[in-house]
Amino acid sequence: MRVLIAEDLTLLRDGLTRMLTAYGFDVVAAVDDGADLARTLVEVRPDVAVVDVRLPPSFTDEGLRATIAARREVPGLPVLILSQYVERVYAAELLSDRSGSVGYLLKDRVGQVKDFADAVRRVADGGTVMDPEVVAQLLGGGRQRDRLAALTPRERDVLAVMAEGRSNSAIAARLVVTEKAVSKHINNIFAKLALPPSDDDHRRVLAVLTYLNEGA
């Protein structure tokens, strides 16, 4: 699996390269600023990119902007964003094209090596992966509460864990319920959010996007 890394801190960039290589990824490019990232994403078209939000020269949102621009040229290009802080607007803007294959993790999660490598794979496979802290803050958003008011507390719990990119079995383990109960809750979520019939994976992404976009 071909990976591009965008990180301006040499130590973290090299650490990510060594870590992902150890887990079987092929790091095909590593860049340290927004201009290089925008060009290299389109030229290399990696299976997944791991991108810091804040890159030179201004250290504001170059990584995000380059990612969004590249996904316009290469729709659905898988990207996992890393950030030092929870930035709700970043999550919503990245998800606005509704094509999936995106993730948003706090940099603290990189230290959980196996979980991080799994998150990279899920994004590369078309999944949506959100940091639990981002999910928790979005859950507190007033607009999100209004839009998702029809969901029961347990259905909101299920949707929050789904937003982390977890499977039904993982959701069941986290919430200490059966997979059958999780499946029932997810079907209720689909119905209450008026998501159109389609394959379950697509509707899971739409449900997560509804949840996240309303929270921003």
Rank of each mutant, 00 (worst) to 15 (best):
A70W: 05
R122M: 00
P56W: 08
S99W: 09
R2Q: 13
L148H: 02
S58L: 11
M1E: 10
A35H: 14
G127Q: 02
V134F: 15
V50I: 07
T128W: 09
T128F: 11
V129Q: 06
R109T: 11
Y104R: 00
H185M: 10
E179C: 04
V48H: 06
A119P: 06
A117Y: 03
A181M: 11
R122G: 07
E93R: 13
A181P: 06
P197H: 08
Y90E: 03
R65A: 12
G111M: 11
D14R: 15
E164P: 08
D157K: 11
D201Y: 11
S96R: 13
A66K: 08
T152I: 05
D36H: 12
L20N: 07
F190H: 07
F59S: 03
L9F: 00
D8A: 09
R98H: 10
H202Q: 14
V205Y: 02
R154W: 11
V50A: 08
H185Y: 13
L138Y: 07
P196R: 13
V134T: 10
R143H: 12
L212R: 04
A194I: 03
S198G: 14
E87C: 06
P46N: 00
A6K: 03
R109M: 11
V129Y: 02
K180S: 14
G15H: 08
R88L: 14
R54A: 15
I81P: 04
T67D: 01
D131W: 03
L16S: 03
A29E: 15
D32P: 00
G142M: 11
R166I: 01
A194F: 10
F25E: 08
D36A: 12
G165D: 04
L159P: 01
R88W: 05
A70L: 10
P132T: 08
A150K: 00
V135L: 05
L193A: 01
D108E: 15
G111P: 05
S101C: 06
G34P: 09
D47H: 10
Q137S: 01
T152C: 04
A216S: 11
T40C: 07
V86C: 04
L159H: 05
I171V: 12
V135F: 02
P46I: 06
A136P: 02
L139E: 10
T21L: 03
A70P: 09
P153V: 02
V28S: 04
S58I: 01
R72G: 12
A49M: 01
V161E: 10
Q112N: 15
L37N: 05
H185D: 14
S83Y: 07
L106F: 04
A173T: 09
R54H: 02
Y211A: 12
V31F: 03
S183N: 15
Q144N: 09
V89W: 15
R156N: 11
D118Q: 11
L212S: 14
K114Y: 14
T10V: 10
